[in-house]
């Protein structure tokens, strides 16, 4: 069952669209906000609420890069790996994050603190290399600053 809060968010978003099906992406994001990720149970709850099959919901959920179909850590780090950051040496940032956390892209630290993902261009190329931790954009990142930067996220 969807929670009261989840229902409320979804119903509010529903009023923005001519066709109810359009709310699916907002709904997946609302569930993820409340539960951290989108589990099979979550899809079943949403399927019941919207009258859309679980399979269709899953096909949509797995298409988009910001919907998590596996549990993620308390904080999600997204390292920009696109062209400007590549020219500015993002690989040394990436390798430093790998070394600090002992994980690679697509993995979560054993203590559940961080999930690490690559991300296409974050639109701050004049301050490359950049990375995102949760909703915080970090610009002009230097490898030696990575440890302190991560320490703020417990």
């Amino acid at each position: 069952m969807l929670s009261q809060e989840e229902r409320q968010t979804i119903e509010e978003e529903l009023s923005h669209y001519e066709v109810p099906h359009a709310v699916i992406i907002d709904a997946l994001k609302a569930i993820q906000r409340h539960r951290g990720w989108v589990s099979n149970d979550a899809l079943a709850d949403l399927s019941e609420f919207l009258g859309v099959t679980v399979h269709e919901l899953d096909s949509i959920a797995t298409f988009y890069s910001q919907i998590y179909r596996r549990p993620v850590g308390r904080h999600v780090i997204r390292v920009c790996d696109s062209a400007s950051c590549f020219v500015m040496g993002y690989e040394s940032i990436r390798d430093r994050v790998f070394a600090e956390l002992g994980i690679e892209f697509g993995e979560t630290t054993p203590d559940g603190r961080f999930t690490l993902l690559p991300n296409p261009c974050l639109g701050a190329c004049d301050h490359a290399p950049v990375l995102l931790v949760d909703q915080d954009l970090h610009e002009d990142v230097r490898p030696e600053a990575v440890r302190d930067l991560l320490a703020d996220y417990q």
């Binding site: 099906h21 359009a22 992406i25 994001k29 298409f63 988009y64 890069s65 910001q66």
Partner: peptide, 27 residues
């Protein structure tokens, strides 16, 4: 006027794919 925040895929920038995404489907 409504703000729709996407769930992230480059192809959404293609204008017809954007409309498909806005309709709540695979973009």
């Amino acid at each position: 006027l409504y703000l729709h925040i996407s769930a992230g895929r480059y192809i959404c920038g293609e204008e017809t794919a954007l409309l498909t995404a806005l309709e709540g489907r695979r973009s």
